[in-house]
Amino acid sequence: MKDCQDITELVERSKIERISLGDRMSIGMHSAICKNCRQFFRDSDTLDEMMQSKRFKHLGEYSFTTEEKEKLKILLQSKSDS
């Protein structure tokens, strides 16, 4: 009998590779009786959706250049010393 940890792991596995019919049935039967796992499945989908969004991908694109960071450090150092 698979527990909640097994089932939620299986769901993540199923998003990466094909899982057996038996495993798919286990997920179905378990989720029919487990509210918390159903909540995790929904949250997992929401997280996927958020991390696959264009909005999310753009976030990592902005950065200061090394030169700008050095200038900023000097400026802050002078402020903190004064």
Binding site: H58, G60, E61, Y62, S63, F64, L72, L76, Q77, S80
Partner: peptide, 26 residues
Amino acid sequence: MSDTSIDTGKLVEEQSDYLLSFAMSK
């Protein structure tokens, strides 16, 4: 650097890009 201040270099390295992304989201 005085005892009450913080490591400004570390602060810039660790927080600046995050803050920039935050600002650019708006």
